[in-house]
Amino acid sequence: MFCLAWAGYGGWAITRRAPLFALDRVIAAWLALAASVVTTVFTVTVAVQRGSGVTLAVALAAGAAFVAVAVLLAVRAHFRRAALLRRTRELSDGGAA
């Protein structure tokens, strides 16, 4: 499912023939976050069913790392987009004065 989402998003971005903008980074970050959360939940569920403490610890550690990186990228993308929108407003207001 996530592979199809990435492929669809990538195909759409390529066919636009336009540079990637801040909103594109936000969308990609949310896709990454959703994929990492679902993958972590699935991996931890499988580890719990197998009953191995080591496997569960590794699944939790790896999943937490992936989710943390995805959250960091999503927050960074949102801040960058907000900064660019602020700059656009400043430039459009400054030009009218």
Rank of each mutant, 00 (worst) to 15 (best):
residue 41 V to R: 09
residue 48 V to H: 01
residue 15 T to M: 14
residue 28 A to T: 03
residue 86 R to L: 12
residue 19 P to Y: 01
residue 45 T to D: 11
residue 61 A to D: 02
residue 89 R to M: 09
residue 21 F to M: 15
residue 81 R to K: 10
residue 45 T to R: 09
residue 2 F to G: 03
residue 52 S to A: 09
residue 37 V to D: 02
residue 92 S to M: 15
residue 56 L to W: 05
residue 65 A to P: 02
residue 45 T to H: 07
residue 26 V to G: 01
residue 10 G to P: 03
residue 97 A to I: 05
residue 1 M to I: 13
residue 39 T to R: 12
residue 68 A to I: 06
residue 23 L to P: 04
residue 57 A to I: 00
residue 62 A to L: 06
residue 22 A to L: 06
residue 47 A to C: 04
residue 27 I to C: 07
residue 42 F to H: 10
residue 65 A to D: 07
residue 15 T to H: 11
residue 22 A to E: 08
residue 4 L to H: 12
residue 74 A to E: 03
residue 60 L to A: 04
residue 26 V to Y: 00
residue 36 S to Q: 01
residue 83 A to T: 05
residue 94 G to L: 05
residue 39 T to C: 10
residue 15 T to Q: 13
residue 72 L to W: 10
residue 54 V to N: 06
residue 62 A to D: 02
residue 69 V to C: 06
residue 33 L to M: 09
residue 9 Y to R: 15
residue 91 L to F: 12
residue 77 A to K: 00
residue 69 V to T: 11
residue 64 A to G: 15
residue 71 V to T: 07
residue 21 F to R: 15
residue 60 L to D: 01
residue 56 L to P: 01
residue 83 A to V: 06
residue 69 V to A: 06
residue 3 C to L: 14
residue 65 A to T: 13
residue 86 R to E: 14
residue 85 L to K: 07
residue 87 R to W: 04
residue 21 F to C: 14
residue 22 A to W: 02
residue 52 S to Q: 13
residue 78 H to R: 08
residue 3 C to G: 12
residue 50 R to E: 00
residue 57 A to T: 03
residue 90 E to T: 15
residue 74 A to S: 14
residue 6 W to A: 02
residue 87 R to C: 13
residue 27 I to G: 00
residue 93 D to V: 09
residue 10 G to L: 14
residue 34 A to W: 06
residue 82 A to R: 12
residue 5 A to P: 01
residue 45 T to C: 11
residue 50 R to V: 01
residue 49 Q to M: 10
residue 2 F to D: 06
residue 2 F to I: 01
residue 87 R to H: 14
residue 33 L to S: 01
residue 54 V to P: 03
residue 7 A to W: 08
residue 97 A to S: 09
residue 81 R to M: 09
residue 36 S to I: 01
residue 15 T to S: 14
residue 81 R to H: 09
residue 42 F to Q: 08
residue 27 I to L: 11
residue 58 V to S: 03
residue 91 L to I: 12
residue 10 G to H: 11
residue 67 V to C: 06
residue 69 V to L: 12
residue 32 A to S: 06
residue 26 V to Q: 05
residue 74 A to R: 04
residue 26 V to R: 04
residue 65 A to R: 08
residue 64 A to T: 11
residue 65 A to Q: 06
residue 7 A to R: 15
residue 65 A to G: 10
residue 13 A to H: 02
residue 15 T to P: 01
residue 53 G to H: 07
residue 48 V to S: 00
residue 75 V to N: 06
residue 4 L to M: 12
residue 14 I to T: 11
residue 6 W to Y: 12
residue 34 A to Y: 03
residue 26 V to N: 03
residue 48 V to R: 04
